[in-house]
Amino acid sequence: MKTMHAINAFSALSAREIGKFMRQKGRLFSALVRPALWLLVFAAGFQNVFGVAVIPPYESYIEYEVYITPGLLCMVILFNGMQSSLSMVYDREMGLMRLLLTAPLPRWYILFSKLMAGTLLSLLQVYSFMIICWLFEVDIPLYGALTALPAFILAALMLGALGLLLSVSVKQLENFAGMMNFVIFPMFFISPALYPLWKLEEAGAELVFQVAQYNPFSHAVELVRFALYGQLNLLSLGVVSGAFILFFSLAVWGYDPQKGVVGRSKAGR
């Protein structure tokens, strides 16, 4: 694969995803309304119910809305990752996937380009939500926008790769509702997005606590939480990187012609 070919193909795939996003005018709005509601309604309501002790990376008591902001930023990324999966399923149903997979490019590169395009969209939405947070005077440091950038990218790659992997087995657009119930909600709720994990342990929910420890989304939230304060959580970095490599490798394997996921959309001989 020549460098110019790779660059042109990447720019074409990215431009298509971004163009699609721009045409779906309600998408950015709905992507921001969801976490904004959590921030402004849920956080306000539960401000006095959840007492958050001083835990790293925080050096003093913080308001609850500050605590949940990294989780909500990751929620934006999570939903966009799953939306990318939906886009793959849509492309398969509309036949466009065939065009992509018969292009003279390595299959991993096509998938990686799609993943990077999704990551760009995630960043656009994440930074838009950060602006909303600042507008509502949520106390997150301004420099965090810069220090958390690598964490956002890695989290977006990991969750986008998960979306790609899921698109291997999600055969129809209608199955997206199932994905909401079985992937997005459990990942989000069984994580430190809304409450510190020690609270689960303290409440005796040992099993949920253990599951949360192994949930890669938990580590994405922690990676972003630390990065917003210019700190690095090495364990989370390792887990998120490892999960990204695993999910992406499995997705590439899933789109292998021998496995024939593309052909499954059409059983005709």
Binding site: M4, N8, A9, A12, L13, R16, M94, G95, P104, L105
Partner: peptide, 29 residues
């Protein structure tokens, strides 16, 4: 290849679809 099922992006213009294909096949702009 022209597949039995359409593989055009209905939301793009004719030019957009053709250009997308060219770039995937390594042609310069």
């Amino acid at each position: 290849v022209v597949f039995q099922q359409s593989t055009l992006d209905l939301d793009l213009t004719v030019q957009g679809n053709l250009k997308f294909h060219c770039l995937l096949h390594g042609l310069s702009r």
